[in-house]
């Protein structure tokens, strides 16, 4: 019987090797490409005719725009709107990755720590660079908590710096864990459903409930990743 973890195996579809490095086009890359194509198609079709009274597709695109825009305004402030394009892309990419991963037989690229960690690391580097560009060396005051007596600074500052540096870890682990756990759980219950014969309807009911939960989690995790990006952006724009 197939292992519940088989769904996460990366298989090369078109093997490519350049200078000893394996650069194959894998199933992970395929589903990333599908997500990008789907997002592009949705946004392009939705904005093709900018009608005053939006049609269905246009409403979807406008809703997602409004959703991300209000998220940035609430969490990063008005100045954050400058970075709307990257945050919108991030949100849509993760959302589509999570949602397309719900299709049976598809591959969920957000269930791989390296994918989520790379995205989190990009956010981390971007936010840090923005902070230094905007405030210069003054940005380092982010690590000196206001109101704390100077005597405990030697203890507080390392903790603050470390807590800044582990942000990409918590950001990526959160998304990856949720996707991995949900998908594995579904496969495990599916195995039960097959093994139990006619009594398999009980795990089947659980799978139905889990599917609903997974759709919620898929959206929620994309939302949390983006909100935290906005919060980090706020920190580097405003310092405390």
């Amino acid at each position: 019987m197939a292992s519940p973890l088989d769904q996460f195996i990366i298989k090369p579809i078109i093997p490519i090797e350049i200078a000893g490095a394996d650069l194959s086009f894998t199933n992970s890359a395929l589903w990333m490409a599908i997500s990008v194509a789907a997002i592009y198609t949705l946004v392009m079709l939705g904005t093709r005719q900018a009608a005053l009274v939006p049609g269905r597709l246009q409403s979807v695109v406008e809703l997602s725009y409004e959703f991300v825009a209000s998220m940035i305004r609430d969490n990063a402030g008005r100045e954050g709107m400058k970075y709307f394009p990257i945050i919108f892309s991030l949100f849509m990419f993760i959302l589509f990755g999570n949602m397309l991963g719900m299709i049976p037989g598809s591959f969920t690229f957000t269930s791989h720590i390296i994918v989520t960690f790379f995205m989190a690391a990009c956010v981390f580097v971007t936010v840090t660079v923005i902070g230094f560009m905007k405030h210069g060396l003054h940005f380092l005051t982010l690590f000196t908590p206001p109101g704390a007596p100077k005597a405990i600074w030697p203890l507080l500052v390392p903790v603050e710096i470390l807590s800044y540096c582990v942000r990409p870890i918590s950001l990526s682990v959160r998304l990856f864990c949720n996707m991995l756990a949900g998908l594995t759980m579904m496969k495990v219950f599916a195995t039960f459903a097959v093994a139990l014969g006619i009594f398999g309807f009980a795990p089947l009911l659980i799978i139905i409930a889990l599917t609903g939960l997974k759709i919620l989690v898929a959206f929620l995790q994309a939302y949390i990743f983006t909100v935290l990006t906005c919060v980090y952006l706020h920190d580097s724009l405003h310092l405390h």
Partner: peptide
């Protein structure tokens, strides 16, 4: 869970 992951990430990072 959110807060838990924060703590775990801190320990792993450290």
């Amino acid at each position: 869970l959110q807060a838990g992951i924060d703590v775990v990430a801190g320990v792993i990072g450290g």
